[in-house]
């Protein structure tokens, strides 16, 4: 029972520390408080699993998971390359690129915009991952089918956001460009695309998570014997839950890193926007 006591003590100690810390606001507090919270959660998890002898097929302890992570590093790396580098990144680039080009292409036609915006909004609510089995049938088991799912999943959120963003330039600003005798492309390049920046990056950020989900779920429907989705489904079959959790940790790290990269680019490109300046 001493492990349970450790768990409870970690939780109470972490909470007490946080309650004290938040009285002194500052930068350090903002970084420290969530870190303490996360650490307390991990210690409590470890303590409860050990204290109550929870079987590993239900919930492995964090120490077991990190052990599986370290031991399975080559396998995890191969899965990461197959899923993220081969499927997600090409699919993400193609899907977002195609949506961006489509949005710019239909930009001159209000008619098409009025038709496509509601359709895009509707498509964003549809369970698009369901096309995964169809794509696997069409493009085979390898990365092509996963990339195809990712393309379709990224397309609509990106399209809707880009169309919305291209409307952001104000009439006054457009008139100014007219008085400069700027052509359509100059106006697009120098005024409207920069003004659309926050929306475009919002779409890009939404798509990072969607792309990873699409690729992993598509792998549940058939893959070569490598990939994060494949590993998750087979290791569940073998009841090796520590490996599954290690794979989830990889997915979480990859997802956060991907999101973080896009956010970094956003900060440099749209540095003028109030949400970043402030």
């Amino acid at each position: 029972m001493s492990w349970v006591a450790v768990a409870i003590a970690a939780w109470l100690g972490g909470w007490a520390a946080n309650v004290r810390l938040v009285r002194r606001p500052g930068r350090l507090t903002r970084a420290l408080v969530p870190a303490i919270f996360g650490a307390a959660l991990l210690v409590m998890w470890e303590g409860l699993v050990r204290g109550f002898n929870v079987p590993a097929v239900i919930l492995p302890a964090p120490s077991m998971i990190s052990g599986a992570f370290a031991a399975g590093l080559p396998v995890l790396w191969a899965d990461f390359v197959q899923t993220v580098i081969r499927s997600v990144l090409p699919g993400y680039a193609m899907g977002c690129g195609a949506a961006f080009v489509t949005a710019v292409a239909i930009d001159r036609s209000p008619f098409l915009q009025r038709g496509l915006l509601p359709m895009g909004n509707l498509a964003a609510a549809l369970p698009i991952v369901g096309i995964a089995p169809i794509m696997v049938m069409w493009f085979g088991f390898d990365w092509q089918s996963k990339a195809a799912v990712v393309v379709v999943m990224c397309f609509f959120p990106m399209l809707v956001n880009t169309i919305e963003g291209l409307r952001m330039a104000e009439p006054m600003q457009r008139d100014l460009m007219r008085t400069y005798a700027a052509g359509y492309w100059q106006t697009l390049w120098k005024l409207r695309l920069p003004a659309a920046g926050p929306f475009i990056f919002n779409g890009l950020k939404i798509c990072t998570t969607l792309a990873l989900i699409g690729a992993i779920v598509a792998e549940f429907f058939g893959t070569p014997v490598v990939g994060m989705g494949f590993r998750i489904s087979t290791e569940i079959g073998r009841m090796a839950l520590d490996m599954v959790w290690a794979e989830i940790a990889v997915a979480a790290l990859a997802g956060s890193a991907f999101y973080g990269c896009v956010t970094l680019v956003e900060r440099t490109v749209t540095h003028w926007h109030p949400s970043i300046r402030g």
Binding site: I216, F220, M228, I232, I236, V244, A251, A252, S256, Y259
Partner: peptide, 11 residues
Amino acid sequence: QTIPILAIAPM
């Protein structure tokens, strides 16, 4: 929000 949570659904 940045984590592909759906991946853990089978688990």
